[in-house]
């Protein structure tokens, strides 16, 4: 398969009053065409920051190092003008909080048409038709009435889909969706899955899904990467990962689901400001051995697709 996006040794850190916050450390990741890849992990483990780094959407105090190659070009070295050509057209981003992401003073239709017009050179009438088509694809039964409403008249799930319509308006080759199912119920979640599937099939775009919903991830993703405290601790095929998790963190995460017995994983994530030099999961790990206290594990290749960062398998 053809590589679409290649992330090499990506580090993102923020300078704050209390010191340097290492949000993402040494992440390597490849995204191929038509692939749906999931990024899972706890709040504050750096998964959203990783997603935003790809489009350079971070605040000014962020410092990104490494390489992000998109279709052979390094995004981090692009000028503002080049970046504008990528954002929305080639890589689209659906952000986390639908309630805050839409402009409350503009009608939904105007907002969708705005993004359609930026991404495609069309007349106003064509823009309107394209927007209505997009809303139709996303499962609205009356797209015309939605166009005339304000965001506050829609429910959370509907707003999410309006945002998705804006993201898809440029027919991007990579879609980054940050928590697309946060706060949605089972039926809506199923719709989101169906929509994303349909979209990848019809346009051939790759999707990076950032989520903490394990069930959702297992239902939609081909490949999954698990993050913990800024590092990728395990990557592999979805089935292999969920049926046979290797890293103790993923094991505990799977066990803490309500349907798997609600087993509590005690403790909290280590601070991203002064990171320990040993294994970052050491304090909470139930398999921790002497060696884990002194050594920082590298990403170990178990088989072709499955890689894990744990000293247990050395």
């Amino acid at each position: 398969m053809e590589k679409l996006l290649e992330i090499k040794n990506l580090c993102t850190h923020f300078d704050s009053r209390n010191g340097c916050v290492n949000a993402v450390c040494n992440v390597n990741m490849d995204i191929h065409r038509r692939q749906i890849i999931g990024l899972i992990g706890e709040t504050g483990c750096g998964k959203s920051v990783l997603g935003q780094s790809v489009l350079k959407l971070l605040p000014k105090n962020a410092c990104i190092t490494g390489k992000i190659l998109f279709e052979g070009k390094d995004i981090l070295k692009m000028s503002v003008k080049e970046l504008r050509a990528v954002r929305g057209h080639k890589i689209a981003f659906i952000c986390q909080n639908p309630a805050e992401a839409l402009n409350p003073l503009m009608k939904n239709g105007t907002q969708i048409m705005e993004s359609v017009r930026i991404n495609q050179a069309l007349s106003k009438k064509e823009c309107r038709e394209t927007s209505i088509d997009l809303l139709n694809i996303l499962g609205f039964s009356e797209p015309k009435s939605i166009m005339h409403k304000y965001p506050n008249e829609l429910s959370g799930g509907m707003k999410q889909r309006v945002l998705a319509a804006m993201g898809m308006s440029g027919y991007p080759s990579l879609l980054i969706a940050d928590e697309p199912t946060k706060g949605l119920d089972a039926i809506k979640r199923r719709q989101v899955i169906a929509t994303i599937r349909k979209f990848t099939e019809t346009t051939g775009c790759a999707v990076l899904i950032i989520t903490h919903d394990l069930k959702f991830a297992s239902a939609i993703c081909d490949t999954i990467a698990v993050m913990y405290a800024g590092e990728i601790v395990e990557t592999g095929d979805m089935e292999a990962l969920f049926n046979d998790p290797k890293h103790p963190y993923l094991m505990a995460l799977i066990k803490s689901q309500p349907c798997k017995g609600l087993n509590v994983l005690n403790g909290t994530v280590c601070s991203l400001i002064d990171l320990p030099s040993n294994c970052r999961f050491f304090d909470r790990c139930s398999y921790a051995a002497g060696i884990c206290q002194d050594q920082h594990p590298d990403l170990l290749t178990l088989n072709e697709a499955h890689r894990v960062r744990c000293l247990k398998y050395v």
């Binding site: 706890e42 706060g183 903490h212 394990l214 689901q257 609600l262 509590v264």
Partner: peptide
């Protein structure tokens, strides 16, 4: 717990 992670959700529910 709808805004919390699976692992934190387990802590709060217990």
């Amino acid at each position: 717990t709808s805004m919390l992670d699976v692992s934190v959700q387990a802590q709060v529910l217990t």
